[in-house]
Design a protein around this nucleic acid. Structure first.
Lengths: 148, 148
DNA sequence: ACACTAATTATAAAGATTATAAAGTAATAT
DNA sequence: ATATTACTTTATAATCTTTATAATTAGTGT
C-alpha cells in the first residue's frame, strides 16, 4: 500500500523529467512511511544515518520539488516550522494546542463556502485551508491529573 | 464608529491593568483605522514619523499584549510575516494568491465541522481557522491582458 | 512629588528558510 | 567510450521574522 504510493510518486516525478536521486528517493520514502507530518528538520535528522553528508538545503529543495509536482502538501504555521504531508486522499487536520499533535480528519470539502466566497468577493476561488484546534485526549488526561 | 472601537479597546486594556502608553495608543489606533491587515513591520513603518525612536520590539510586544487581551487576532502564514486584525465581528478571510490582498468574508461559523471533528478525534475542540484562496478581481483582469 | 513597577529602547540572538558558488553526478550526443 | 551539457548536491553565508536581554525611561497610585 505504502509501497504503491511510493512507486506512483516516483513514476510521476520521472514522467515530469525530475531525476530520481538517492536523496530524493529516501526523502519520499520517509514521507510515505512516516504516518506523521514531519518538518524539514525531522527529515534531515531521520536521514543523517544513511546520508551523513546531506545538506539541509537538499531537503528543502526537494520538498519544494515535491510540492510543485503535487506529491506533497506544505502545512505552514506562524513561528514554527512547516510540516509536510504526503498527498493521498483529501483531508483536514485537527491540531492539539497543547502538544502539537496533528490528526487527520476526513470531511467532505467545503464547496458551498467556496462558492459563496467567490460570489461575495469576486474572487476566482481555487482552494481553501481549514484546521481545527483543541486539546487531544492524552493532553486532557494530563491536564486533569495535574490540575493545569 | 472606529473611535468607539478604540475607546472600548482602551477601556478593556485599562481594566485588565495594562498601561496606556503613547506607543500602545498609536498602534491600536493604527489597527482600528487601517482597514487592511498590517504586518508588524507595516505598523512600525507607519508610526516611525510620530515615534522616531520606537523599537520593533515594542510593536511585537504590544501586539502580543493585544492578542492576549483578545483585542487583536494574529493571522499566521508560512514564510511571510504574520498579519494582525483588530477584532470586531467574527469573519473569515479570502486571500489572493497573486497579490496577497486579504478580503473579509462573513459566513456562519462551522459549528458542525467542529462537533464532528471532536466526535471523531476525541479532541476537546476550541477553535478553527479557515481561509479561502484564489485570484482577486483586479489580478484576474491583469492576467487576461497580459496572457499570464 | 515619590516610589514602585512596567514599558521602551537598543542590541543581540535565535530559528527557519533561501541564495550562492563550487563540486559532483547523471543524461545525451558525438 | 568520451565529451558536453544540464541538473543536483553540498557547504556556507545571508536573509528575514521574531524573541530575549539589559539598561534606561516613563506611568500610576499614594
Amino acid at each position: 500500500m505504502a509501497e504503491a504510493h511510493l512507486q506512483e510518486a516516483l513514476t510521476t516525478l520521472k514522467d515530469s523529467g525530475v531525476r530520481i536521486t538517492p536523496q530524493r528517493h529516501a526523502i519520499l520514502d520517509y514521507l510515505v512511511q512516516s504516518m506523521s507530518h514531519p518538518t524539514a528538520d525531522d527529515i534531515y535528522k531521520a536521514l543523517e544515518g544513511k546520508f551523513p553528508n546531506m545538506s539541509v538545503a537538499t531537503v528543502y529543495n526537494n520538498l519544494r520539488v515535491f510540492r510543485e509536482s503535487g506529491l506533497v502538501k506544505e502545512l505552514t504555521y506562524g513561528d514554527a516550522s512547516s510540516r509536510f504531508d504526503f498527498v493521498t486522499t483529501e483531508h483536514y487536520h485537527v491540531i492539539c494546542d497543547s502538544c502539537g499533535t496533528i490528526v487527520d480528519f476526513h470531511y467532505p470539502g467545503l464547496d458551498e463556502v467556496e462558492h459563496i466566497a467567490s460570489h461575495v468577493t469576486g474572487f476566482q476561488v481555487r482552494h481553501h485551508r481549514m484546521e481545527i484546534y483543541g486539546v487531544c485526549g492524552s493532553c486532557r488526561q494530563k491536564d486533569t491529573h495535574e490540575q493545569l
